[in-house]
């Protein structure tokens, strides 16, 4: 074997091994996770937490119903008591009972100073949809009862501009709008004041908005028409 052939063979060998290694390396790198998975995990985790919370609630409900069922089977007076308990809870959920509890007070008022030049006037007056969003955000954050200027929000409550006023439960409400919500004060406040969230958006429109925690709020019952 000449010296040359040996050198050539050695170089070929090195090149071949290098090639294989490179190929393996590429494949391994390709398989490593992309940037999406972190977001996906985050999204799934939020879902999971919420479902777990819901399960907790359902378990409480089952325990409660089981207890009432037991009472009903015990005797007449217990039965009446158990039914009354269930009735009260359903009435509370329907908004037919005045409730008290900790929560937040959100006060919204129209911008006081003149609108900036170049912006159409009247664009920044609080609209029905702003109030709708506030209420929706509060329900989403786990509020248990809400009222606006004394009007309890129930399943069929509308918040609708009937110019120049906003009607809620077909009653006229005027600014400043005082939204009361019973629920976990910290959760309610943090969901409203999320960076880039609703309060920031409304403030950027120039709407005067304050959010305050309270230990004890009273939310009136829905007044039947």
């Amino acid at each position: 074997m000449s010296q040359r052939t040996t050198v050539y063979i050695s170089i070929m060998l090195v090149a071949a091994i290098l090639g294989i290694m490179l190929a393996v390396q590429f494949r391994v790198v390709n398989r490593s996770p992309g940037g999406i998975s972190a977001n996906r995990a985050e999204e799934l985790l939020t879902d999971l937490k919420q479902i777990n919370r819901e399960q907790e609630n359902l378990k409480k409900e089952i325990a409660d119903l089981n207890y009432k069922l037991n009472q009903v089977n015990k005797g007449k007076s217990e039965a009446i008591e158990a039914l009354r308990g269930e009735l009260n809870k359903v009435r509370m959920s329907a908004g037919l009972v005045t409730v008290t509890g900790p929560g937040v007070e959100v006060v919204l008022d129209n911008p006081k100073n003149e609108t900036e030049p170049g912006m159409p006037p009247g664009l920044f007056i609080i609209r029905d949809e702003d109030l709708l969003k506030v209420v929706n955000e509060l329900w989403g954050a786990g509020a248990e009862a809400i009222s606006i200027n004394g009007q309890r929000i129930i399943a069929t409550s509308e918040i609708r501009l009937a110019a120049p006023f906003i009607n809620i439960n077909t009653r006229r409400v005027v600014p400043p709008y005082q939204v009361l919500a019973v629920g976990n004060p910290d959760t309610l406040v943090s969901s409203l004041e999320l960076p880039g969230g609703l309060v920031e958006y409304l403030r950027s429109l120039g709407i005067d908005i304050t959010v305050e925690k309270h230990d004890d709020l009273t939310i009136p019952a829905y007044a039947e028409r």
Partner: peptide, 10 residues
């Protein structure tokens, strides 16, 4: 479920 953790009837 209907669970009220914070709200109580007056």
């Amino acid at each position: 479920g209907l669970v009220f953790e914070y709200a109580r009837p007056e």
